[in-house]
Amino acid sequence: MKLDTHSDWRPATSLEVLKRRARMLARIRGFFARRNVLEVETPILSPTAATDPHLQSFATRYTGPGKPDGCMFYLQTSPEFPMKRLLASGSGSIYQICKAFRNGEAGRLHNPEFTLLEWYRVGFDHHRLMDETAELVTEVLEGQFRLGPVEKLSYREAFLRYCGLDPHTAGTDEFAACARERGIRVDGLSRGTLDSWRDLLLTHVIQPQLGKGRLTFLYDYPASQAALARVRPGNPPVAERFELYLEGAELANGFHELDNAGEQHRRFERDLARRKHIGLPGVPPDGSLLAALEHGLPACAGVALGVDRLVMLATGGASLAEAMAFPIDRA
């Protein structure tokens, strides 16, 4: 057997950073213990996968007792669905620290395998959960990062402030003109969806301005970007979803959780149709989640927070690789 002995076997970061990472994880667990939020673990392997066209799951094959011919298992992109099954079964508020996996994502702020903190609060809406998220992050960063007062901006306010347009009513031409004025030249979006244009301006223009020395929340997203959030009727209807930013990096994404099985089913079908339309492989949607929603999900809000990004910001790293022992190129 020939082994590659040239690869760098050492960790990508210092022992000091790893110790601080461990202390931050202990603080997270302490925060939830004091609030009586139960720590849980759910499977990383699932026979079903996320349908979101922007999430690509790793797939692997299980062969063994019970499955002589083998069957596909997917590595979770987040623990959301099994955690909602726990909530529907009466668990009360729960949290989990686990590994999540997303194929095709690697860069300064992305590693295909990363650590998520995900928690659900029964009886909370997205505003109350934003407040708790700010309390958690402030406590975990205490003594490591000075934070100014928390800022909350609706998705619309952020676009008005930094792009000078209303993201709910603007058309492709307006988005394109805004990008052009700011010197952003983009290929391949001429036939892009409105959401692609929103994503372009959010990542290129708005995001770098968010969370400078403080926590900035964006909330109430376009209904087309609801993902797993409730949509609040109105003009326009908005998704009760939020994201948290610190120093231009997205740290967390949360929802006032959709609890309607019929609507969830329609979103699965819409996702799968979209995947087919853009040439992505189909995936089996989670029937157990639908059954749990049929049974009844308690009104709740949930949020997922990128632990590696939080460690990176706390320790002054320039990239995610500096916050983890073995990023993908040393795995």
Binding site: H54, L109, R185, V186, D187, G192, D199, T203, H204, E250
Partner: peptide, 28 residues
Amino acid sequence: VKPGKGQAFNRVKIRNLRTGRVIERTFK
């Protein structure tokens, strides 16, 4: 670059080898 839920992009710095000029371009 990729938003939490949404379209991923590659932001690229490119030097034109004929003119020497450096420009930025974004690709889906």
